[in-house]
Design a protein around this nucleic acid. Structure first.
Length: 441
RNA sequence: GUGAAAGUAGCUCAGUCGGUUAGAGCACCAGAUUGUGGUUCUGGGGGUCGCGGGUUCGAAUCCCGUCUUUCACCCCA
């Protein structure tokens, strides 16, 4: 009976595994050079962990299970609650700031689509314990540091930055009541996806007062932080939010990534827990869903039963990123191909035993080495070997960079022929076996 | 969860008024080549045409269901 793979999952054959490893290695490398330390948690948690900040609707998007004691568990759909739990648990012992990263494997029971699967990897970086905007800028820098490293330019991707605090202050400033903010966020978040007329209609439904609606519309098309200043009257909240955004942009400018960054009031982000700067990175063409998203969430640790400690962070999934990198031809060029260093061959079957001993010695020095499985050797000395031609063909197929040929020179002078397989023209040299092995170490 | 399109070999796809044992390229395996590979040539394996049911003398082809994928919604932590 043939059993199909599970909906929305991927099999990683060696070529795909090479891509996945290359992406994740890059994430880790950039995390470390930006000063983050790696952490991880369990792949499942108590179900209630995911009900705290998101409603029961989210529970339907979870893979959940019961253990034998009847506890409701869920496979993690995100790692931020785990992070909050871990930090809260040792809050008094951890030196601050806490700069942690993780590359968890996550599962969500959503309908699969392009760039969205039911199982995926997500790079998370978070800075906990810093309320200064410098931390927000650093999270964005780390994100862009990676994207730039893998070869994406500002013609490929763009970081769209806004502020939940500014948006809230503007909305309050025009007289929107506090309890309407969340439903209004949902509408504003859709602006980029909807035709202008549809958006206006939805906005009018939420904000019947046309003067209020106009100011909101004007805010939503602002192209810079400065544009916002001329739109609304200053109160302390607005001034504060604007200053924070200006600091973020200024810092990013000094860090040399301002050509990737743009102010975009349309970045609202789905859930309610963001409290300050929010950002998303999109492909410039705008054909894919967001490559990553993040922002400041100063209340989350408190919501998970800890003290009120400020935090800011970012999450980037592997699915959309991989699609974009493939489209730009950046995988082909950069993902390392499987490579064998030495392929040990013989010109005559009488050297079969020497193939085995020399191969093992090469491996012992830390280099990779292989031989042909057509070789045959019995303890009595009976042996056979495929032709040298076949062995070399096999070596080429395995992408070996060098071949070791054991032939008459070995019987006469203990010398090996080392053939360079990376050259188009024949290129080989003879070297004593002891010299060869000692050069390897 | 809602709506739409597609599914033929490992991959990309041919294959219609329904008619013998379902094809190609690439990939894979083997030979041509017994001290020198990547090219070339020759041959081979591999498909109950996604799965199940129906119509028919006869179904890859027509109809229904189902699964998967993709697209548009919901959602996007």
């Amino acid at each position: 009976m043939k059993i199909p793979p599970v909906k929305g999952t991927r099999d990683f054959y060696p070529p795909q595994m090479a891509i996945r490893n290359w992406i994740i290695d890059g994430w880790k490398q950039v995390s470390v050079r930006n000063g983050f330390e790696e952490y991880d948690g369990p792949i499942f948690e108590l179900l209630q962990m995911y009900q705290i900040k998101s409603g029961d609707e989210i529970v339907e998007q979870l893979f959940s299970l019961q253990d034998r004691g009847g506890r409701d568990l869920a496979i993690r759909p995100e790692i931020t609650p785990t992070l909050a739990r871990m930090v809260n648990q040792q809050i008094n012992a951890l030196p601050r700031p806490i700069k942690w990263f993780s590359v968890p494997r996550l599962c969500r029971a959503e309908r699969p689509q392009k760039g969205r699967l039911r199982e995926f990897f997500q790079w998370n970086v978070d800075i906990i314990g810093v309320d200064r905007s410098t931390a927000d800028a650093e999270v964005i820098l780390t994100t862009l540091d990676y994207l730039r490293m893998v070869g994406l330019t500002n013609r490929d991707v763009q970081a769209k930055i806004s502020s939940r605090k500014l948006l809230a202050a503007v909305l309050r400033g025009v007289g929107i009541p506090e309890e309407k903010l969340n439903s209004l966020y949902a509408v504003l978040d859709k602006k980029a996806k909807l035709p202008a007329e549809t958006f206006e209609a939805m906005l009018a439904e939420q904000v019947p007062d046309s003067n209020q609606a106009r100011v909101i519309q004007d805010f939503m098309v602002a192209r810079s932080v400065e544009d916002v200043e001329s739109l609304v009257d200053f109160d302390d909240d607005i001034q504060n939010a604007i200053m924070n955004l200006k600091i973020v942009f200024h810092t990013l400018d000094l860090m040399g990534v301002s050509d990737y960054c743009v102010f975009d009031p349309g970045i609202v982000r789905g859930l309610a827990y963001y409290t300050g700067v929010v950002f998303e990175v999109h492909d410039v063409v705008g054909e894919l869903r967001a490559i990553c998203g993040g922002g400041r969430y100063d209340n989350l640790l408190r919501d998970f039963g800890g003290p009120r400690i400020p935090a800011t962070g970012m999450g980037m999934g592997d699915a959309v990123l991989e699609i974009l990198l493939a489209e730009k031809g950046l995988l082909e060029r950069q993902v390392p191909k499987p490579q064998l260093e030495y392929y040990v061959t013989c010109a005559d079957a009488i050297f079969t035993k020497d193939i085995f001993t020399i191969t093992a010695k090469i491996r012992e020095t830390g280099h990779s080495a292989a031989f042909n499985y057509g070789l045959w050797l019995e303890p009595s000395g009976t042996c056979e070997a495929p032709s040298l031609s076949k062995q070399l063909k096999d070596a080429a197929k395995q992408n070996a960079s060098k071949c070791v040929i054991i032939g008459q020179e070995y019987a006469d002078k203990r010398e090996l022929v080392i053939k360079d397989m990376t050259k188009d023209q024949p290129s080989q040299a003879q070297v004593g076996v002891d010299q060869f092995l000692s050069d390897l170490t």
